[in-house]
């Protein structure tokens, strides 16, 4: 545990992981919101279709997030390590900086993979209940829309806390993004 703390301290990875968490969590929520609204507009009555489409999107985002972040972060960390080696005029192969650098790439990749999957899964929970006949599909749409709005709002609150500014303002800004996609999709639905 102390080693993990040391690696985080050396690489300053918590800042970038926090950024990835909020950014990709937001992406996950918005993607599934798009899927759910699209299903609502086209009158999808089978929850299985929404769950599978949503999880398909989640999985794709998760896998792409993992590899994208891992390779990008690894390249960046290698460059930083080379700069440090040049400053020290010494090979850092056996130092904790090499291990910390690998750890930072892996942690960023895992955060980038799990955050969209987590936020997207929250929005899909009502449809899973609906799949097993616990609640009607109409209620699932309402519950899912409410949960997605709450998730977006929570991400805003979290970012407001990080910034140390008005948390409600950040929450509302995130909700507005959800509202924009809702309006656009309903307008598209009108013309389709």
């Amino acid at each position: 545990m102390n080693k993990v703390k040391l690696y985080i301290q050396v690489t300053h990875v918590s800042d970038i992981a926090r950024r990835y968490f909020a950014m990709n969590g937001f992406d996950g929520s918005m993607t599934v919101l798009g899927v759910i609204l699209g299903a609502w507009i086209t009158g999808v009555k089978d929850p299985k279709v929404i769950v599978m489409t949503g999880f398909g999107a989640c999985l794709a985002m998760g896998v792409s997030g993992f590899f994208g972040a891992y390779i990008t972060e690894k390249a960046e960390r290698r460059r930083q390590l080379r700069e440090l080696e040049e400053s020290m005029l010494e090979d850092l192969d056996d130092s904790l900086h090499r291990d910390a650098s690998e750890f930072a790439s892996a942690l960023t990749a895992i955060t980038n993979c799990l955050s969209p999957a987590l936020t997207a899964a929250i929005s899909l929970v009502p449809f899973i209940f609906s799949m097993f006949g616990v609640i009607p599909i109409f209620n699932s749409y309402i519950a899912s829309f409410t949960l997605t709005s709450l998730t977006l709002f929570s991400i805003g609150i979290y970012l407001g806390r990080v910034a140390g500014e008005n948390v409600w303002l950040y929450g509302i800004q995130m909700l507005m993004a959800g509202l924009v996609i809702t309006i656009i999709l309903f307008l598209l639905g009108e013309f389709a």
Binding site: L6, Q9, V10, L84, M88
Partner: peptide
């Protein structure tokens, strides 16, 4: 000693 800035001196 020449050291990198991280980890810091107390550590």
């Amino acid at each position: 000693v020449l050291k990198l800035r991280d980890p810091p001196l107390p550590e």
